[in-house]
């Protein structure tokens, strides 16, 4: 990973995944610090992600992840501390197991579990955060928008050709 700071003059606009919406649940103890660090270093990142800080990723309800997908968010990243290094006595491990269990469900119905990115412990430092976000955003960029999924729910052929 090379630093793409302003000084280096190597600014690269990342267009991959443009138009996609990605939500990042970031633990305030790890990933949010990484995000802050990436900001301080002015690393250029795709502008598709929105961070929602959480006290611990154990706060992230699987229901909220499902809700995100079904309301049209293309990717959800859950970024927390290292497993075994949680500030809250291992709360993130249980949470990790729970989210891990969500993945087969997402696969079952064709949402694709790759839209749910879980990362534990890689994001504490800025370059790790940046790398994770960038690769996730580009992965989501390569996938069809999740709205294609919900749109497939309206399958009737309308003589007037209107689509929701």
């Amino acid at each position: 990973m090379t630093d793409r700071t302003e000084d280096s003059g190597n600014i690269q606009v990342v267009l991959e995944g443009a138009g996609r919406k990605i939500v990042v649940f970031a633990c305030t103890w790890c990933a949010l610090i990484g995000a802050d660090g990436a900001g301080k270093k002015r690393i250029s990142l795709p502008a598709t992600f929105r961070v929602i800080p959480v006290e611990c990723i154990s706060r992230v309800e699987a229901d909220a992840v499902i809700r995100a997908f079904t309301s049209g968010i293309d990717g959800v990243a859950v970024m927390g501390c290292h497993l075994g290094g949680c500030r809250h006595n291992g709360a993130n491990l249980r949470s990790a197991r729970k989210l891990e269990l969500l993945k087969p469900l997402l696969d079952t119905v064709g949402i694709d579990s790759r839209r749910l990115f879980t990362s534990y412990g890689t994001a504490h430092e800025y370059h790790q955060f940046a790398q994770a976000i960038e690769s996730f955003c580009s992965q989501i960029g390569e996938m069809p928008p999740v709205s294609a999924w919900s749109r497939s729910f309206v399958r009737a052929m309308s003589a007037r050709g209107e689509n929701e």
Partner: peptide, 13 residues
């Protein structure tokens, strides 16, 4: 475009 229409093979609106 009713519920039924959404689930139909063809919908004549």
């Amino acid at each position: 475009r009713t519920e039924v229409a959404n689930n139909a093979d063809m919908h004549l609106q």
